[in-house]
Nucleic acid binder design. Structure first.
Length: 418
RNA sequence: GCCGGGGUGGGGUAAUGGUAUCCUUGGGGACUGUGGAUCCCUUGACCCGGGUUCAAUUCCCGGUCCCGGCCCCA
């Protein structure tokens, strides 16, 4: 037997229904904010991804050489593709350009809870605006998407990479060392930073300042404690705007650095605490396209939500999911009623009712059992006695109550009951 | 890439160095239109490969997959 590849999943009808419901809710949230959906290829030239990210991303990329001897890769994320699309064909469109996407991504990683080799992301990019209200708009959209999914317990943390970055880069001349410090801040490995500072004879005072900033966390009031700077003013403006958007549960977290170094300003994350190790369900921030492709500077801000993790968190919050595929199941009482049953189900379907009919020529009793097993809300029993009066029996599968209804009224009646 | 814990019918389980229990589900029949019942029949499993052994589902090794953790990320 052929097994499903490691780190991939099959989704059954019930799970797909729940996923599609969540996806549609998020799509609707994006559309309400004026974002248009785009779709890009599942695979791209490997360069697209290797150019902007480091070795770590390359190592876990599904890369391959195609029959034309081109280096290709399954996309490990979608932002790069959207940016490529923008640079290729959309750079002359009116700004700001607001795009969103939903698709599968691939990373060759070791699977664990909330981590798969094929996973799904919904993301949005706001291209061409560098003002705090744009960042606030993107944060608000990300939060609204998570809210739309139905998730109750989540934590939004917003930071600004410029605050730490400018401090570290101003005080440490060695670029590599500065990058290393930022990486250690991201990992919250402050001991390592202390060791490094001692080894390089960097003043302890700077370490204390870095530590103080990196540990600045809490409500928006902690922003008042920050030294005045371009970045801290910017962050304050973002929080003012978030409040205007009705988003007032965001935390400040200046310790967010994020691994990828193309982020330049605002950075933010959303966690679902119930998920444990892989609790981050969203990551985002602002960046400039110019740093990725060497073109004209275009300021952008965006985010990506891990749909799979959102689904996992939703399932933890609400495990049971009442859902059936069929509202009405049509049962012929006897074999000579099968044709009537089939025309009956066709009529129900064209009236927009999710209806099914016995295809296995089962007995009445087995059919009732089947109707119950698939969770049909109503059974319609087509028998010769009722048929003589152009009627059928409508049975409520929850209560067991049943009554005779004229055939011409059945669709209307069921629509009314549902 | 690394580190733990696991793989028995579709799902859940029991036992065992001599190929397997029970429940559930699926299919069929009885029941000749309400028995969503009851009864009967039936399909269906020891992850893969190698080793030890007369004999391996069981013991050993390797692989693989699942679950969880590290790294990193969604």
């Amino acid at each position: 037997m052929i097994q499903r590849p490691r780190g991939t999943r099959d989704f059954g009808p019930k799970e797909m229904h729940r996923r599609r419901t969540v996806e549609q809710a998020m799509r609707a949230a994006c559309a309400r904010a004026g974002f248009g959906e785009v779709m890009t290829p599942t695979f791209e030239h490997a360069d697209l991804f290797t150019l902007r990210s480091g070795q770590a991303v390359i190592d876990e990329m599904y890369a391959f050489r195609d029959k034309g001897d081109r280096e290709m890769a399954l996309r490990p994320e979608i932002t790069a593709s959207v940016i490529r699309f923008y640079v290729n064909e959309m750079s002359n469109l009116p700004k700001p350009l607001k795009l969103y996407y939903l698709g599968n991504c691939f990373r060759y990683e070791n699977p664990q809870s909330g981590r798969f080799r094929e996973f799904f992301q919904l993301g949005a990019e706001l291209i061409g605006s560098k003002n705090p209200e744009s960042d606030a708009e993107i944060i608000a959209l990300a939060v609204n998407c998570v809210k739309a999914s139905g998730l109750k317990d989540y934590v939004v943390r917003v930071g600004h990479i410029g605050i730490l970055k400018s401090l570290v880069q101003a005080e440490i001349d060695d670029k590599k060392a500065a990058a290393e410090v930022l990486r250690m801040i991201d990992k919250e490995d402050f001991d390592a930073i202390g060791d490094m500072f001692d080894a390089r004879a960097i003043p302890r005072k700077l370490f204390d300042r870095i530590l103080a900033i990196a540990e600045t966390r809490g409500g928006s009031e902690v922003l008042e404690r920050l030294d005045k700077s371009e970045a801290s003013d910017y962050l304050r403006e973002i929080f003012v705007n978030l409040k205007l958007h009705g988003i007032d549960d965001c935390q400040v977290d200046l310790g967010i650095v994020r691994g990828l170094d193309y982020y330049t300003g605002m950075v933010f994350e959303i966690d679902a605490p119930c998920l444990g190790a892989e609790k981050q369900i969203m990551g985002g921030g602002s960046y400039t396209l110019s740093e990725l492709f060497g073109g004209e500077p275009v300021f952008s801000t965006g985010f990506a939500i891990g749909i799979d993790r959102v689904m996992l968190a939703l399932f933890k919050e609400q495990p049971e999911d009442e859902y059936s595929l069929v509202d009405a199941y049509v049962i012929p009482a006897k074999d000579d009623m099968r044709e009537h049953a089939i025309s009956m189900v066709a009529g129900l379907r064209s009236a927009g009712i999710r209806a099914d009919v016995d295809l296995m020529r089962r007995s009445m009793s087995k059919n009732l059992k089947y109707a119950s097993a698939i969770g049909a809300r109503y059974a319609i029993i087509v028998g010769s006695k009722e048929m003589a009066e152009q009627s059928v029996t409508l049975r409520d599968m929850l209560s067991g109550d049943q009554r005779i209804i004229a055939i011409e009224q059945i669709s209307e009646e069921i629509t009314k009951l549902l």
